[in-house]
Design a protein around this nucleic acid. Sequence first.
DNA 1: TCTGGGGTCCTAGGACCC
DNA 2: TCTGGGGTCCTAGGACCC
Length: 423
Amino acid sequence: MLALIDANHFYVACERVFNPRLEGRPVVVLSNNDGCVVARSPEAKALGLPMGAPWFQCRDLARRHGIVALSSNYPLYADLSARMMAVLGQFSPRQEIYSIDECFLDLTGLERFDPTAYGQAMRRRVQQWLGLPVGVGFGSTKTLAKLANHLAKREPDWAGVCDFGALDAPAQDALLAGLAADAVWGIGPRWAARLRALGIATARDLRDADPQVVRRRFGVVVERIVWELRGVAGLTLEAIAPPKQQILASRSFGRPVAALAELQAAVAHHVARAAAKLRRQHGRAGAVQIWLRPQRDGAASAPPSIAGLLRLAAPSADPAVLTAAATRGVAALYQAGRRYRGAGVMLLELGSAARAQGDWLAPDAAARAAARLAVLDQVNARWGRGTLRLAREGFQQPWAMRQDHRSPAYTTRWAELPVARAG
DNA sequence: TCTGGGGTCCTAGGACCC
DNA sequence: TCTGGGGTCCTAGGACCC
């Protein structure tokens, strides 16, 4: 038995924990650069504000209905996420953190608990300890647990918990028949359209489809979903997160950038962020890929990003080494007179630092570099990210993203701690 | 007229997730 | 004028090996 627990409108819920005035009001949280809507309170959903909508297109609607819009506050969400995962981890020894606001729990061996009551206990504890609303779904496979979680949100009398296996067959059939195929985890709009053309329109149709036909037409991924819907597990719970195979850092600019030095500074900044993530998993990168996103020039189709792959002489997690390569790469891609709207960095060919090969011509170079990086990480852990950085990253950073409606870092910055007053 | 059978590695592209 | 930022897995096809 597996459980899938996720928070409802997680980013909005995090904001409400520290700003109760947002309770009961329509609230949305915007993506980086205040670009589009990435989280909506139920009140905002009820007003018809679509997920993913560009914010500038929603402004009129928002003004008419008094919708509150907030910039993303990732330090806050990441901190509350870590706390939520710790609380939920108390309910099972095996937990897979699947995203910032959801996790799977393996409840094998806990069968003596009534799942529905156990799920209610999870909801109560997260609500009471953190002030976050969560939903819980139980199923014999990951796909069924996901589906149950979805149903728990839809059926008001279930109070946020659904144990799919506890329903009898006719009830399961009726619920699955009421769900479009793309409500199933792993079925996106493309596959849903192709499935519909074959007469497979609902989750029930998909469960009852011929696995061999599905395999021939869609491959093993969709076939596995068919089996998972029948209760045959094809996806395992990954309690230990495997190291990342690629690490990406990218941002749109707050305003268009035309100067080469500014592009190089922005890319150096992304390299620093990506390299810090890489060191956290004790890895090294063998190659760096960078890309620049030119501004649209009126054409209907979006212009391509231009990308360059740079191989390093030896794998590294050193921002100085990686930035040197990236800086040359930017110069090679750069076209004078063009304006760019964003840039990004990807670290590839990741391997473990523990298995890295040394340079016999400079036997102590690796140890010296490691010591330097340790100092870098310690300083930035103590005094804040970016305290110690390459001058190449620049000081003004005029390309930095816009965040016009950001709430304070309530839990991660001393200066921004909330203040409680008596009386 | 008929043209084997078993691999590996790499890249590009497509689909999906939150 | 303004449309995010991360990730994963699978497949197909080409080049190459014996």
